[in-house]
Amino acid sequence: MHEFSIVSSIVDAVQEFGEKHEAKKILEVRLAIGKLTHLQLEQLKFCYTAITKATALEGSTLEIEEVDAEAACPLCSYRGAPKFWEGALNFMPVPTLQCPMCGNATDAIKGNECAIKSVKYAG
């Protein structure tokens, strides 16, 4: 349940941003969350509603943009979607670091994002 600590840092960052920009009201916070993170989006939204109460962010909407994973192979120079594990037990595809072209280990170059993209506010 580290969504709680992530949302706490959102509140801190946006409050600081709001003070700097002399925002009267924060209207919307947009996040980019990579699909390789372990963050559960419903829990993020739930924590957001709970934690923002009585802060400058109360009543604002949280928009989450999911970022697809991307892998790069140092051996065969493949760059693109990771290989997904077919036949695992999961109801959703499991991304792997196996190169879809040559089978070697790839590096994840996208998919670990966890960032505030933008803030919409009334000034």
Partner: peptide, 22 residues
Amino acid sequence: HVEAAPDEIYDIELEKSLLDAN
């Protein structure tokens, strides 16, 4: 409460990573 007129609404790029501090 105050309400912003459409020309008082700002949308600012922030690009702040939340895992950066750690």
